[in-house]
């Protein structure tokens, strides 16, 4: 069992969930309708909760405790994809990100059910259920707004075109990729991306949106190796604003 490879996998997943959960929580009180405030808040809780569970697993593998790892690292120590750290923008971008990321998330957990590492497999089985609702929520809204008014279709199309290169960055392979696949820990990013494309293509084909030609896109890589946009560090500064005043205190 290659502990480093497992940690690498858990870190990128945990960091993705934490940062996107944090971003989604920014919609509370700001959504286009109350029902969406509530939905985004609920998904944000699931995501932050999932990250907490993953950091706990890392803690069992010898990493620092979750509050320290999540709240007190610097941007370059984070392994999330750049996609999740982008600001929430308008609802069109947040919805497209929700759709593209959560589709990948759902299939990632689906693949991890077959992981040779039992705790990961068990966790994936549990979390896949939550992610399924996120993915259904996203699909429903994409179909609704992607067939809505000219404005909603145009907005979603622009957001989709902008988001795709970042979304492809989710599938950036880590340096442990071969080990993860060889040891049946995780089926790998390339396989995940194939399943992701199949799903998003199916949903988008039921709308008036057009999926950009993915072969022509250059993915925004770097996140998995600690290279981030200018948006991550301010997010982390805000997240640690209180706890960093006294990390040893009991809050």
């Amino acid at each position: 069992m290659n502990i480093e490879a497992i940690k690498n996998l858990l870190y990128k997943m945990a960091d993705d969930q934490l940062i996107l959960g944090h971003r989604n929580s920014e919609w509370i009180g700001q959504g286009p309708l109350l029902e969406e405030d509530i939905a985004f808040a609920s998904m944000a809780q699931d995501k932050v909760g999932q990250s907490y569970t993953l950091y706990q697993m890392l803690n069992e593998l010898g990493e620092d405790e979750p509050d320290k790892v999540a709240f007190l690292r610097m941007a370059e120590q984070f392994h999330n994809s750049q996609f999740v750290e982008l600001p929430i923008g308008e609802y069109d971008f947040s919805l497209i990100r929700h759709f593209l990321f959560d589709t990948a998330d759902y299939y990632r957990f689906d693949m991890l059910i077959n992981s040779s590492i039992e705790p990961i497999s068990l966790l994936a089985r549990k979390l896949k259920g939550e992610c399924r609702y996120h993915s259904m929520h996203a699909d429903g809204w994409i179909k609704k707004l992607g067939n809505g008014t000219d404005e909603s279709i145009n907005r979603l199309q622009s957001a989709l075109s902008y988001a795709i290169p970042y979304a492809l960055g989710i599938f950036e392979e880590s340096k442990m990729e071969d080990t993860l696949i060889e040891e049946n820990i995780f089926g790998g990013e390339i396989l995940l991306r194939e399943r992701w494309i199949e799903h998003i293509d199916k949903v988008i084909s039921q709308t008036q949106l057009v999926l950009p030609d993915l072969a022509l896109e250059s993915p925004h890589f770097g996140g998995r190796y600690g290279i981030h946009t200018e948006h991550l560090q301010p997010l982390l500064n805000e997240m640690s604003e209180v706890i960093a005043t006294d990390p040893t205190a009991d809050w």
Partner: peptide, 10 residues
């Protein structure tokens, strides 16, 4: 205001 287009579209 930012959410009006969403409510209109649904």
């Amino acid at each position: 205001e930012r959410g009006r287009w969403v409510r209109k579209a649904i």
